[in-house]
Design a protein around this nucleic acid. Sequence first.
DNA 1: CTCTCCACTGACCGACCAGTCAGTCGGCGT
DNA 2: ACGCCGACTGACTGGTCGGTCAGTGGAGAG
Lengths: 214, 214
Amino acid sequence: MDKTERRLELLRAARDVFATKGYHDAKIDDIVAAAKVAKGTFYLYFPDKRSVFEELVDGLFAKLGAAILQVDPAEDVEAQVKHNIRAIVAVLLDDPAVTQMLMSFAAGLDPAFAKKIGSFYEGVKRLLEESLTEGQRLGIVAEGDPDLYATFTIGALKEIFLESALARRVRPREEIVTALFGFLERGYLRVLPGEARALGEERVAKRRRPVRRS
Amino acid sequence: MDKTERRLELLRAARDVFATKGYHDAKIDDIVAAAKVAKGTFYLYFPDKRSVFEELVDGLFAKLGAAILQVDPAEDVEAQVKHNIRAIVAVLLDDPAVTQMLMSFAAGLDPAFAKKIGSFYEGVKRLLEESLTEGQRLGIVAEGDPDLYATFTIGALKEIFLESALARRVRPREEIVTALFGFLERGYLRVLPGEARALGEERVAKRRRPVRRS
DNA sequence: CTCTCCACTGACCGACCAGTCAGTCGGCGT
DNA sequence: ACGCCGACTGACTGGTCGGTCAGTGGAGAG
């Protein structure tokens, strides 16, 4: 087993232990036991307990950031928004352990850590808020405080993932996407109605992996 | 200073320390320092650290439970829903310290504690879900999975209070009420439109403290 | 004045655990 | 064969708190 593999092993072990016991109850001894190495080995790969935790969270943040595409108002908005929702759902549900950590342990840890997560959400919110403001200018988004809209949306998202992570209920992904979009649409989205929709999905698919054709 | 007062003093101190430092970083020594008593005194009033915390949370739970009224579909629904939102907003914003604890430390503590908070939210959700299902039967609530609607709603609520508790933004209460209601209404509420609204507020007020007349 | 009572005190204890480091061991180059 | 390297080990340490309890002081009763 080479170094990269061992590191991954430790990361995996840490992720599982954190997810089941929570940050504070997760002891380094638990993690090394799960990874079947001695305690000292852990410290060959990570400087301390918190840094493993941060690495896990950072990884998910990065995946999320990569998955979300900027919405282009010139194209079919519904399809793009649905695509983004679908992407977020996929990333988060594919890694329920880290997702649970992210959703549940938000604050309540040391201030430095809370700041980290806080600033992430703030970033996401600002992005969403800007999209919404722009959307209002274009008549795609209803009147009202975009800041509040953003907050509501993020809250709804967080809650559904928290629920999934706690495994209180497993839901088909597409059901989440459709329901959330429906909720948002009748809440504050005013999308071009009718014809364009079916085509929209296709358009986004094309942009992700461009299809060459004659 | 009599016993009740001292107890309250400790509770207040604990609340403040928990809110600023989080459960784990809040040391008994911090609490007794804030309350200006010796450590031993703390243990004359509370059996251990967790029980103070639970007492604080229970208090807020109780206040919330008391504030929320069952919605009667025969009466003006909009007014009643708004009334409930207003009540929740009032309780939570009046005690930002405990609210922050409630919103932030959801899980990530010992399992027993997580279960406590979890079961509370589950209870709230079930109640809301039932109301929504009933609402669908009556044509007040749009088609769709009431479970998802409930999750979204609670998420939106939680998020806005989390934001307030972290003092990232202070908002006029009525603004929150109106915005959230608008969001829900255009999301899935189908309320009797028009005339009944102005009267509705009055009707709810009457029910809380019955007015005898002639 | 003294005795009793009890709220209050704070030095202390022991469990717990993140992080350390002197030592082991196997593989590989020579 | 030999010695070096570095990955790995796990007993140990130092510090931190939650919780304890023998002692203090002052108020009120007799």
